[in-house]
């Protein structure tokens, strides 16, 4: 792994590139920022309006739901911050043969993955509203905001992001074996988790809840950590998100390495005459 100065230098470079891309024109900047925001705003507004109509959802008050939705949005923001430009949607890069571009670089692949998708300006459109939503909820005084709470919040957010990105890599690795059929698997997995994380899973039955807290880890993206942080579940529940992050990270690393080994034998069709994207 690279030294911290090297990491910071690369993040600095990608920050400049992110700025250059987005500030090419005012129109471009507004399209990106507003587009990202609108993509999430609809569902968030719908859940809040539903909570207004039914006086909460699954025992969650409007204020608590605001925190849950803000938490989920913040996880998306952190993912965008570090893994934009299809780094998180890794199946696309593999399926399209673009992984070769990363493999050719004179640096470890892991370093490429944690720097190449760095997009702080894109992330602002998600991180800022998410922060406002969580702060608005906490300002109501439902929980005491102590240094320990803030530390737990930051750790939980990072763990949830690991679950989201790890899940994408886990399924995205299938593209090593099925470049065309699995090319869109990572975005499909992300979309599913994103669409499920906005609901408090208290409304689901025990079986569904268990499924969404294990094989399909949507619960770890907002519901489980938010429940623990807001005191709706035992503080020990907080550790569940960290355990999930470790398991998903381990499984995705294993799957990705297996896929990469397979890829070493087969390669990509991108530049061949019969490549599917030609």
């Amino acid at each position: 792994m690279a030294s911290p100065p090297r990491l910071l230098a690369l993040w600095g470079t990608y920050t400049r590139m992110n700025l250059v891309l987005l500030l090419r024109s005012k129109q471009q900047f507004v399209t990106y920022i507003v587009g990202d925001l609108l993509a999430r705003a609809g569902t968030i507004a719908a859940v809040l309006l539903l909570a207004e109509r039914f006086d909460g959802i699954g025992g969650w008050t409007q204020g608590q739901l605001l925190f849950l939705l803000g938490y989920g949005l913040m996880v998306s923001g952190i993912e965008t911050l570090f893994f934009n430009y299809n780094v998180a949607a890794i199946s696309r890069r593999i399926g399209r043969g673009q992984l070769d571009h990363s493999l050719l670089q004179p640096q470890p692949l892991a370093l490429t993955f944690i720097t190449e998708g760095f997009a702080p300006v894109d992330a602002l459109a998600l991180v800022l509203p998410a922060g406002v939503m969580m702060a608005g909820s906490l300002a109501a005084g439902s929980v005491a905001v102590t240094p320990l709470f803030l530390l737990s919040l930051v750790a939980s957010l990072l763990a949830s992001t690991v679950v989201l990105v790890g899940f994408n890599f886990l399924f995205g690795a299938l593209a090593f074996w099925a470049p065309q059929g699995a090319e869109e698997l990572s975005p499909a997995a992300t979309n599913l988790l994103q669409s499920l994380k906005v609901f408090p899973l208290d409304v689901a039955g025990p079986g569904l809840r268990a499924l969404l807290s294990s094989v399909v880890p949507a619960g770890f993206l907002a519901w489980i950590p938010s429940s623990a942080l807001l005191g709706r579940s035992a503080p020990s529940a907080m550790t569940a998100t960290f355990v999930a992050a470790a398991v998903v990270a381990g499984a995705s690393t294993f799957a990705f390495h297996k896929g990469l080994t397979h890829y070493g034998h087969t390669g990509s069709q991108r530049y061949s005459d019969f490549g599917h994207r030609r």
Partner: peptide, 11 residues
């Protein structure tokens, strides 16, 4: 950007 915004709002 246009597609994401469209999908998010239309649903």
């Amino acid at each position: 950007a246009v597609q994401y915004a469209r999908a998010g709002m239309i649903v």
